[in-house]
Amino acid sequence: MADHDHDHDHDRTVKPMVDEVTDFEVLEIALRELCIEKGIFTAEEHRRFTEFAEQIGPTPAARLVARSWLDPEFRALAIAEPMTASKEVGVDWLEPTGFGTPSDFTAFEILVDTPTVHHVIVCALCSCYPRPILGNSPEWYRTPNYRRRLVRYPRQVLSEFGLYLGEDIEIRVQDSNQKHRFMVMPMRPENTDGWTEDQLTEIVTRDCLIGVALPRAGVTTNVVVATRPAVHPVGE
């Protein structure tokens, strides 16, 4: 079993060790060992998927948007054949199993914002999210709170992310409750004339791709950046 190597940079923080071994850790180890001993899967298969899961993140999606802003042909491709466009930014939705990541399916659609329509995604049933091109979802996206409220009070929830949209803009909530996975293509912001694809990619944050933020020149971080450390036992 390969050890978890953490000299590389994640967009999330992985905590490899805690002081007290928790019930969840015990159960995970026990189940993994039994699966390998019974030949349900091999240690090599587990290692391969782990490596795959550690290299996914929102950068390809940001690049896809930036390229679409610069190249009308690519933009048309991204709308018509989003999985073909994904390949051009390095994401093959059939990887790593040959039929996709099982929980995410291979049905992808890009929701294109216009001056009068703003999209925002949620999965009110669990946390369906375009992992292959956005990486794992943020913790808040999975909370019952976000899932309960976004489908009913989208303007209030967006305001809690600092996003206030006028009455001339239709908010279109996409509840991705089945097999389709969605991401938002926001509009190119002002004050970015002459920018390169790399420069534009930097301002397309994960939150912009979910639809809880809009890209702005000079802003390269997500709205929610506070990270609560995991401490076991609680209160130490």
């Binding site: 060790m17 969840f24 782990t50 976000y146 929610v224 950046v225």
Partner: peptide, 19 residues
Amino acid sequence: YENKEYEYWEHMTYVMCEV
């Protein structure tokens, strides 16, 4: 809304389910 440290067992659980 806040992030939290992603624990190793959480990551391993996601991987095991997908495998």
